[in-house]
């Protein structure tokens, strides 16, 4: 099936993979954010632990989890391939370059933002996901693994809060460009709807970044 591999190894094909996986990851962010909102429930973490138990054991979720891994994998892999290709395409750079006068900073620095998010992701996965899935967590009163307490104690450490908030700012900027860019790459551009996509993109980026950032801040300052 050479036409398929040719399609997806072309410059536009790779961008299409970036956009589809990007939008898929956006949908993950929504689910993740909504679920995590349980952290704000003032019940000593019971609801959150029920939720995390469900997420860790439900067979459908466990299957989708692999899709998510693939989504991240492709998104990251393609970004490396494209970055390399784009660097080669430029060749010798300019002595003086004032790109800031023609385009927004975040659009030119998606790789940098993505790298920050990736580093955060690794720390984040190690701290919560790995320990919840493979480590030994104390049970809560409902005999669910008490992930809540782990979250609460983690977010009492200043460096951790700073890393989280910084990563969410990076995520916000990544989304400001990425969300609308995904639609553009898929060719979903229309003078009637594109302004709406842009607005939703901004709102989405701010809400998601602020939502996730509010959690460490909440625990650090109010718990």
């Amino acid at each position: 099936m050479s036409w398929i591999s040719k399609t997806f190894s072309s410059s536009i094909g790779r961008k299409i993979i970036m956009s589809i996986t990007g939008l898929f990851l956006c949908s993950f962010l929504v689910v993740h954010l909504i679920g995590n909102l349980q952290l704000f429930k003032d019940d000593g973490g019971q609801a959150f632990n029920v939720y995390s138990h469900f997420m860790g054991t439900n067979p459908i979720i466990r299957t989708v989890e692999w899709v998510l891994v693939l989504g991240f994998g492709f998104h990251i892999y393609e970004s490396f391939v494209l970055t390399r290709r784009n660097k080669t395409a430029r060749g010798n750079g300019y002595v003086t370059d004032h790109a800031e006068q023609n385009s927004p900073w975040q659009s030119r620095n998606m790789g940098l933002l993505g790298t920050i998010i990736l580093i955060f992701l690794l720390v984040h996965l190690y701290n919560f996901f790995y320990r919840a899935r493979f480590g030994e967590l104390d049970p809560d009163i409902n005999n669910n693994d008490d992930l809540y307490t782990l979250v609460a104690t983690s977010f009492k450490q200043l460096w951790y809060v700073i890393l989280y908030v910084a990563a969410q700012v990076a995520l916000g900027y990544h989304l400001v460009h990425g969300f609308r860019s995904a639609f553009q790459t898929l060719g979903l551009n229309h003078r009637k709807y594109t302004p709406a996509i842009k607005f939703v993109g901004y709102a989405f980026s701010v809400l998601v970044a602020a939502g996730f950032a509010s959690m460490p801040l909440y625990f650090y300052f109010f718990k």
Partner: peptide
């Protein structure tokens, strides 16, 4: 692609 141009990342420059 063959000519070695880069891929668009919708920067808008």
């Amino acid at each position: 692609d063959k000519e070695g141009f880069g891929a668009c990342s919708n920067i808008g420059s």
